[in-house]
């Protein structure tokens, strides 16, 4: 199955700009389904971005982050070709991880 994670990391002058999109329902626990039943909360709690043994970015999320969450940030000290590993875990213990190369 295709990864839930899509990421683009582009280096310019030692700075790496990262954008990511994760496929996840991010159910808040307050919405109802077609039958009027509450859809239980199901949301990503932690996302990490690590490169060369170091975490460069962490996102802690609550249930009010939008479905299919998007993130954008940048960090210093990266270069083209560096590996960048993105991992998430959610409140139900599910997780995914993906390693990409900085372009």
């Amino acid at each position: 199955m295709a990864s839930t994670i899509r990421v683009r990391a582009i280096a310019a002058d030692g700075n790496v700009e990262v954008q990511s999109l994760i496929r996840h329902p991010m159910d808040s626990g307050f919405m109802k389904n077609d039958k009027g039943q509450i859809i239980p909360a199901h949301f990503i709690q932690t996302v990490t971005f690590e490169t060369k043994g170091k975490i460069v970015f962490t996102a802690f999320w609550g249930p009010a982050i939008s479905k299919d969450p998007y993130l954008k940030f940048s960090y210093q000290g990266g270069a083209k070709g560096d590996p960048l590993t993105i991992s998430w875990t959610d409140n139900e213990g599910m997780s995914d991880t993906l390693t990409t190369k900085v372009a």
Partner: peptide
């Protein structure tokens, strides 16, 4: 609390995400 971003040294204080209201 909707999101918390602890920044590593060298990570720019410049982030974007999307929230539900």
């Amino acid at each position: 609390l909707t999101a918390l971003f602890p920044l590593a040294a060298g990570t720019a204080p410049d982030i974007a995400c999307r929230v539900k209201m």
